[in-house]
């Protein structure tokens, strides 16, 4: 293969999020002209915000070549606790929300403990805490929906500077996360760890601390996402958050974050990925695709994301290998 061909291939692989974005946009636009209306975009953005928040956390985890499957259960558990505190104990709202965030962070901390201290594979740890967390949530809610007072469910619809609050919360979180990854020492070190954990250790980085950190952040953001989602729905029912981990993984990977670590961004990456996922979902509704077919298409989208990621990683490593050998 010639050099230009390789470069071309790499350019395509590295810019898949944008290419996909444009393609999906055009396809749905043709299928349903209503898709292009402003309200539609605002709807997409509003309903994208909580998944977007989870995706930010997921991106942190994926950057270290880990995975967090437990975020959906975490959302459920922490939101349930907030709901129960308010409903049954008459706790002030701020306290309940604070508790929810603490629970979410602790949840992430437990994942981090098993992964960093006991060295168990991340997907197994988070798969177990996924099941255990949801079990615990169902136990304390007796598997019944917890309705939240209107004071919470209302502010999901409140607008500040013309934008719905969930979008603003998401924007703030995404901005902070973006700045953190770009300008904080630890942010850059997370990239280093994902790129080459051995070299990171040799360079004297505290890899354990950084890895624990990303799982804790993921837990914290899952709890916040739970709250944001509740503010829109007003109720925490038994299926709350179920399967959201897939959307978050898909969004992150579609946005160009690699499952193999070290590659990925919050902006544009995770943000575009989130909008992409949400756009597909909204588009499926707009084009009136059979309810039962929608999840099939979503699964296919996730697959495409993972597939492209694998191909990209393989191509990059091939080219790297060539590099290394050329000089030998």
């Amino acid at each position: 293969m010639s050099k230009t061909a390789i470069k071309f291939k790499l350019a395509i692989l590295k810019n898949t999020p944008f290419i996909l974005f444009v393609c999906i946009f055009i396809i749905f636009g043709i299928l349903s002209p209503k898709f292009f209306q402003y309200e539609n975009f605002e709807n997409i953005a509003t309903s994208a915000s909580y998944i977007g928040i989870v995706t930010v956390g997921m991106t942190f985890v994926l950057l270290t070549a880990g995975i967090d499957l437990s975020v959906g259960s975490n959302m459920f558990l922490s939101a349930s606790i907030a709901g129960l505190l308010i409903r049954d104990l008459n706790a002030p709202i701020w306290l309940a929300l604070l508790c929810a965030v603490l629970v979410g962070t602790l949840y992430g901390g437990i994942n981090a403990f098993f992964i960093v201290k006991l060295r168990i594979l991340p997907f197994l740890v988070t798969l177990s805490t996924l099941v255990a967390g949801r079990g615990l949530g169902l136990l304390i809610t007796k598997s019944q929906g917890v309705t939240l007072p209107e004071s919470i469910s209302n502010w999901g619809a409140v607008r500040v500077v013309g934008l719905p609050v969930p979008i603003i919360i998401y924007a703030v979180i995404a901005l902070i996360a973006h700045l953190f990854l770009k300008f904080f020492p630890m942010g850059r070190q997370i990239y280093a760890i994902g790129n080459d954990p051995e070299a990171a250790k040799k360079a004297g980085l505290n890899t354990d601390r950084s890895i624990a950190f990303v799982y804790i952040i993921s837990g914290l953001l899952a709890a916040i996402a739970g709250i944001v989602s509740v503010s829109q729905m007003g109720i925490v029912n038994a299926g709350f958050g179920d399967g959201d981990e897939f959307d978050a993984i898909a969004a992150a990977v579609l946005g160009g974050t690699s499952l193999f670590g070290g590659i990925g961004t919050i902006f544009p990456g995770a943000v575009i990925g989130t909008i992409l996922i949400q756009m597909v979902q909204a588009g499926l509704v707009y084009t009136q695709v059979d309810m039962y077919i929608q999840p099939l298409i979503q699964a296919a989208v996730i697959f495409v994301a993972v597939f492209l990621d694998s191909i990209r990683s393989r191509e990059i490593s091939k080219i790297e290998k060539r590099h290394i050998r050329v000089e030998n």
């Binding site: 020492p185 850059r188 070190q189 990239y191 280093a192 994902g194 790129n195 080459d196 070299a199 990171a200 040799k202 360079a203 004297g204 980085l205 070290g262 590659i263 790297e320």
Partner: peptide, 20 residues
């Protein structure tokens, strides 16, 4: 080489002791 290919030159040089 012990460099992180996904980071810039300056980040590689100061990865363990970033000037803040």
């Amino acid at each position: 080489l012990n460099l992180f290919t996904n980071l810039s030159i300056e980040e590689n040089i100061y990865i363990s002791s970033f000037p803040t």
